[in-house]
Amino acid sequence: MQCLLCHQNIHHKASLQWLLSWQPLPHPVVCATCWQSFTRIERSTACPGCGRAQTSRRLCPDCQRWPSNQPFHNVALFTYNDAMHNYFQQYKFRGDYRVRAVFSTLMQTTVNQLAGDVVLTIPVTASTMVTRGFNQVTGWLTDGLNQVDGLATLVQEKGVAQSQKARQDRMATPQPFKLVMGTERLRQQRVILVDDIYTTGRTMRHAADLIIENGAKSVTGLTLAR
C-alpha cells in the first residue's frame, strides 16, 4: 500500500505476537514518517478547558477569559503544526476525501472513550457542501459511529472563513447555529461535540451554549487539533 499523504510505499512488518493472536493483518494508510510528523497532545498535562498542549494541567490564559461555570471542556488530540496544516490543505481545502482515513479510527476510538450519550458534529454551510461535497468532521465518523444531525448553520453561504479572521473578529462572531433536533433528546444528556480545529474556541462554545440552553447536562468538545 501507499501512504495517503506522501504516496511512498508502506512497509509494514507484523510482529510475532500479532500473528499468534490470529487477528486480521492491519492495513496502515499512512507511513511511519508521516505519522511521526504529527505532534500528539499529552492529555495529562493539557489545559483542562481547551486541550491545549502545555507542561502542567492548569487553565491556559485563553480559557481564563471564558466563564468558569459552564459545563463545557474540550479535548484536543494534536497540536496544529506544519504537518497538520498540510493535512487540512489536502483534506479540507483540496477535497481529498480519502485522507479522512488517516485519523478516522483514532477519532472514533476517542469518541467511544469519552462515553457521551449523544454525539453531535459542527455543521458546514449548504454552499460548502456543494463546493466541497462533504463535511470534514463527519467524514472521520462515518464508519462505526451513530452521530446525530442536531445542528445546522443559520446562513447558507459562508462569508469570511474563520481561519482568515483575526482573534478579535472571531470572538465577535454572532451565534451561527440553530438546533434541528428535538430538545427532549438533549435533556440531561452528556453530549460529545466534534469539530476539526479549536483555535479561539468561539465556534465550539457557540454550539455548546446552544446545546446547554436546550437542556444538555454537559458538553465535551473533541477536536483533532488545537
Rank of each mutant, 00 (worst) to 15 (best):
V180G: 12
T39Y: 03
D143I: 07
V194E: 07
L154R: 12
T55I: 10
T110A: 02
T109H: 14
P71A: 13
V29S: 03
N146F: 01
G139N: 07
M1R: 10
L193A: 10
N214V: 05
G144T: 01
K217H: 12
A101E: 14
M181A: 06
F78Q: 01
A225K: 12
L19E: 09
C47G: 04
T131R: 00
A161G: 11
P71D: 00
I122K: 04
F78D: 12
R94Y: 01
S127H: 09
R205Y: 06
G139S: 02
A152Q: 10
V75P: 07
F134I: 08
I10E: 03
Q8R: 13
I197H: 08
T200K: 08
P26Q: 04
S127C: 03
R187S: 07
F93Q: 06
T183L: 00
P28N: 07
T128A: 14
Q108C: 15
H12W: 11
P28C: 09
R58A: 14
N112K: 15
V155S: 10
R226V: 15
Q90F: 00
S44P: 08
R205C: 08
R132I: 03
Q164A: 11
N86A: 15
Y198E: 06
Y80H: 13
A83I: 06
S15P: 12
R170P: 14
S37I: 05
W66A: 04
I10T: 11
F78C: 05
V124Y: 02
V99Q: 00
H206G: 04
A216W: 00
G182C: 06
L114R: 07
R132A: 01
P26Y: 07
A166R: 09
P61L: 10
I212W: 07
T223K: 01
